[in-house]
Amino acid sequence: MIMHDILLKPVVTEKTTMLMSDGKYTFKVPLSANKVEIRKAVEAIFGVKVKSVNTLRITGKMKRMGKYVGKRPDYKKAVVTLQEGETIEFFEGA
């Protein structure tokens, strides 16, 4: 995989914004991505040192529209903790 294919998009919510002050940044990643690939992608794209990577596999919710039943897609979230003093400028405006 190419580095830019691993980090699909940042997850910006109230909770993740509060985590940014602790040096933790959250990204949506493909289901096939592992922690080593995520670490290398963040270090290469943003030029920072990663301390740890935690991943969560989120299952999609079942949704109904009248009598039709569908399912939202599954996805994986990665919470990346950076070394002390490191920040990602991309998130500073958020």
Rank of each mutant, 00 (worst) to 15 (best):
Lys51Met: 02
Lys51Leu: 07
Lys51Glu: 08
Ser52Val: 01
Ser52Asp: 11
Ser52Tyr: 00
Val53Cys: 01
Val53Gly: 02
Val53Ile: 08
Val53Lys: 01
Asn54Phe: 02
Asn54Val: 09
Asn54Gly: 00
Asn54Pro: 00
Asn54Tyr: 03
Asn54Asp: 05
Asn54Met: 04
Asn54Ser: 06
Asn54Cys: 00
Thr55Gly: 00
Thr55Phe: 01
Thr55Trp: 01
Thr55Ala: 03
Leu56Tyr: 07
Leu56Gln: 06
Arg57Ala: 03
Arg57Trp: 00
Arg57His: 06
Arg57Ile: 12
Arg57Met: 11
Arg57Cys: 04
Ile58Arg: 05
Ile58Trp: 01
Ile58Tyr: 02
Ile58Pro: 02
Ile58Asn: 02
Ile58Asp: 01
Thr59His: 05
Thr59Gly: 00
Thr59Val: 10
Thr59Gln: 07
Thr59Tyr: 06
Thr59Arg: 06
Gly60Ile: 06
Gly60Trp: 04
Gly60Val: 05
Gly60Pro: 04
Lys61Pro: 03
Lys61His: 03
Lys61Gln: 12
Met62Val: 14
Met62Lys: 12
Met62Gly: 00
Met62Cys: 01
Lys63Gln: 09
Lys63Arg: 13
Lys63Glu: 05
Lys63Asp: 00
Lys63Ile: 14
Lys63Cys: 00
Arg64Leu: 08
Arg64Glu: 08
Arg64Thr: 12
Met65Gly: 04
Met65Val: 13
Met65Phe: 10
Met65Trp: 08
Gly66Tyr: 09
Gly66Ala: 11
Gly66Lys: 11
Gly66Pro: 08
Lys67Cys: 03
Lys67Gly: 10
Lys67Pro: 03
Lys67Trp: 10
Lys67Gln: 12
Tyr68Glu: 14
Tyr68Asn: 14
Tyr68Ile: 14
Tyr68Lys: 15
Tyr68His: 12
Val69Trp: 01
Val69Glu: 15
Val69Pro: 02
Val69Ile: 15
Val69Leu: 11
Gly70Leu: 09
Gly70Cys: 05
Gly70Trp: 08
Gly70Ala: 12
Lys71Ala: 09
Lys71Met: 13
Lys71Gln: 13
Arg72Gln: 15
Arg72Phe: 11
Arg72Gly: 07
Arg72Pro: 04
Arg72Met: 14
Arg72Thr: 09
Pro73Gln: 09
Pro73Met: 09
Pro73Ala: 07
Pro73Gly: 09
Pro73Leu: 11
Asp74Trp: 03
Asp74Ala: 09
Asp74Phe: 05
Asp74Ser: 05
Asp74Lys: 07
Asp74Leu: 08
Tyr75Val: 07
Tyr75Gln: 12
Tyr75Ala: 07
Tyr75Phe: 15
Tyr75Thr: 06
Tyr75Leu: 14
Lys76Asn: 14
Lys76Asp: 07
Lys76Leu: 13
Lys76Arg: 15
Lys77Asn: 11
Lys77Leu: 12
Ala78Gly: 09
Val79His: 06
Val79Phe: 10
Val80Gly: 01
Val80Pro: 02
Val80His: 05
Val80Asn: 04
Val80Ser: 05
Thr81Tyr: 05
Thr81Glu: 15
